[in-house]
Design a protein around this nucleic acid. Structure first.
Length: 117
RNA sequence: AUAGUAAGUCGGUCUGUCGCGCCGGUUAGGAAGAAAAAGGUACGCCUUUUAAUCCCCAUCGGUGAGGAAAGUCCGAGCAUCAUAGAGCACCACAGCGGUUAACGGCCGUCAGGCAGCAAUGUUUGGUCCCUGCUACAGAGACGAGAAAGGUGAAACGAGCACACUGUGGGAUGCAAUUCCAUGUAAACCGACGUCUGAGCGCUGCUCGCGCGAGUUGGAGGGUAGGAAGCGAAGAAGGACGUGGUAACACGCCGCUCAAGAUUAAUGACAGACACCCGUAAGGGCACAGAACUCGGCUUAUAGACUUGCUAUAUUU
RNA sequence: GCGGUGUUAGCACAUCGGUAGUGCAUCGGCUUCCCAAGCCGAGGAGGCGGGUUCGAUUCCCGUACACCGCU
């Protein structure tokens, strides 16, 4: 099983991200908000926590790393190629188990979206 | 011993599983294609071989957040603006002496106020010639005869800063700046101007100097990607010696020091140990994340340690 | 990352270092058959912690929060 998450799997570039957020569809998998868009090429993921809710940088880093690890360990369950953004939207700092559950739920939902299309 | 006070040091460690950025090596593959050689040609060029270089996959090795990385409050390096500057304005500092690349920092020291039994801490500190202010109260507040009493923070002698003196400061900041790529059209409405000079060039104003025929507002439209700056050695830290009360300076020692990302790496989970609280079960383990780089200051911070000094008590 | 601005009553804003005002809102009264408008009156404030000063919203230092600009 491949758990690696190299840089080519991350969504980069200011312009690409702007365009992605303009066109992308979104849904909520508490405490995450998921924005997605079908991709022709490989799957790329963006992960962040908002500065307005978490003023201290180390808290944002911590949450970003939790979400990233949860995605990394479950990425093989995701089918198809997507551009994907996960951002944290709860005011509280929640433990890893909660974040992991939310990511799994989001991946299941993505798979069912793919069947529809 | 307890309490206090000052200065300084540190601010977790290890193991397992799965991962990330950067640098270097190796193996395999791919892209583009300088140059050379050979062959072909319709003389435009085409094909093949070797292969610097680059990209990517795999793998191995190295390395990877702080004492405050924070606030952005000071001071510098560095970069651009004109190989033309001057004056004013503006801003900062302010006992005295020293220190430094520099500083508003740091060290020593003097005087006053406040807190404390004390060690000590904290705070203020150029000048009143000119200009201005001193409410209420008071006959009168810097103008005027004086004194006593009264008022008032202050009553003729002053206090203070917006005043004066001395010293220093050009402006803007890495979103600086340089290179590559991309974009930069015309027309329309308005303002100023073409040597009687609009505007631009070093910031606010004035002068001076240079360039100068177009400049500018509106409306509308477009680009905003990559590389360098940006990472090993320098105003660096440490040991020892000398000078100095000290900050610090000098000498000497191959003693130490390799993050460099860019929606942004430096991690996630599990376990053990150490430490703290508790009889135990058990619980706790701070503040906090590099973004060009240094020197300071300020603010946040669980806990641990070292040394000096002070007070109190006891013992010898 | 760098630079700048603000915080005064429930809201929007004033105020050379000398008793903190104005408008709207709120409450009470007058007026009206009742309401609105109008008139009279009342309550209510300097983000927080220090310093300078006889005296601080104003000057200085620290701190918290909010906002703006950059190519």
């Amino acid at each position: 099983m491949d758990y690696s998450f190299p840089k080519s799997g991350k969504l980069c570039g200011k312009m690409r991200i702007d365009a992605f957020y303009r066109q992308g569809k979104r849904f909520v998998s508490w405490p995450l908000r998921v924005t997605y868009l079908p991709s022709d090429e490989a799957t790329e993921v963006l992960v962040w926590a908002p500065k307005s809710l978490f003023k201290r940088a180390y808290k944002r880093n911590r949450l970003r790393r939790l979400m990233r690890e949860a995605y990394r360990l479950h990425q093989h369950e995701l089918e198809g190629n997507w551009l994907l953004a996960l951002n944290y939207m709860d005011k509280e700092e929640l433990p890893y188990a909660v974040v992991e559950k939310a990511v799994c739920k989001a991946i299941k939902k993505m798979n069912s979206e793919r069947v529809k299309e």
